[in-house]
């Protein structure tokens, strides 16, 4: 039977992609951020997952306002990045696991989640940056991937409570898959940041630290916030916390913290890293 072995949360901002491209790992600005990742990679090397479910938000690459689904799940044999408007180079495609994708989609739709299934899907920095942080060697693709894209562009966004429930339903779906597979779930984005408006540059360290603590043992406390609360407390793009809640829901009730890191500022964000292991 397939099993979710744990999850990782990480920022996904484009600036990280640039820093990786320029190998700024020892640069004083970037070092406190990048230094968090070796431990996460060690954990992954130990766990050896077969599949990564990558919960992220599309930032206007694969989805436009003509058709803006709340929850989209990839069911393609592979996923490709694109230029995104600023000339990013094509990366080797990320292999998918369409059979597991369809199993999850069937399970979720029967569980009354109204999923958008995507048999072709371009993935943006919300997906590629976390993958590069956790599996830096771009010539290798040691895990198959299932992208789960969540609308954070067009309000209304799904409520934090709904997102936690989606995660729980993903957990049930994976647990009912008959093949022996180890699955990790990535919750990407966050923590507090705001790019737009006179309030641009807003960061809320206290709120971020509280999230990093509560999400381990008490995610329901975070799921009580409204989207409007999150925008107020974490900034307009801080609402990406809902992606972490989906990840957390999928891990099951009991998890243990393997590793965490937090650093301000990375570009305009408070960057949080967390490695959680599901109870055996």
């Amino acid at each position: 039977m397939a099993k979710i072995v744990g999850g990782v949360t990480t920022s996904h901002i484009p600036a990280i992609g640039n820093a990786i491209a320029n190998e700024l790992f020892e640069d004083p600005y970037w070092k406190p951020f990048f230094d968090g990742y070796p431990k996460a990679r060690e954990w992954l090397a130990e766990v050896k997952p077969d599949v990564a479910i990558v919960v992220y938000n599309d930032h206007g690459l694969n989805f436009f306002l003509d058709k803006m689904p709340t929850f989209s799940i990839g069911a393609a044999p592979e996923y490709q990045n694109k230029d995104e408007g600023w000339g990013l180079k094509p990366l080797p495609p990320y292999p998918g696991d369409p059979e597991l994708s369809w199993h999850i989609i069937e399970s979720l739709v029967n569980d009354e989640f109204d999923i958008c299934s995507c048999q072709e899907m371009a993935v943006d920095h919300g997906f590629t940056v976390p993958m590069a942080l956790l599996w830096p060697d771009q010539t290798q693709r040691p895990v198959r991937t299932i992208p789960v894209a969540v609308n954070t562009v067009q309000h209304p966004l799904p409520t934090p409570a709904r997102c936690l429930k989606l995660g729980e339903a993903i957990g049930r779906a994976v647990a009912s898959y008959p093949k022996d597979l180890k699955v990790v779930v990535l919750g990407t984005g966050g923590l507090s940041h705001q790019l737009d408006g006179e309030r641009a540059g807003f960061i809320n360290k206290d709120f971020d630290l509280m999230c990093l603590e509560k999400i381990v043992d008490e995610p329901e406390a975070l799921a009580k916030y409204s989207i409007h609360d999150l925008v107020r407390l974490a900034g307009a793009q801080g609402a990406e916390l809902i992606l972490w809640l989906i990840m957390r829901g999928a891990l099951g009730r009991k998890v243990s913290k393997v590793h965490s890191n937090y650093h301000i500022p990375i570009s305009n964000t408070g960057a949080g890293l967390l490695v959680l292991e599901s109870a055996a």
Partner: peptide, 24 residues
């Protein structure tokens, strides 16, 4: 919308700090 505007901003060679400064 900031997500689509980011394509315009990126095309101009500006980053989120340049735009943050301009807005504030």
């Amino acid at each position: 919308n900031i997500y689509y505007l980011a394509k315009f901003i990126g095309m101009l060679g500006l980053n989120v700090q340049d735009i943050g400064a301009q807005q504030t």
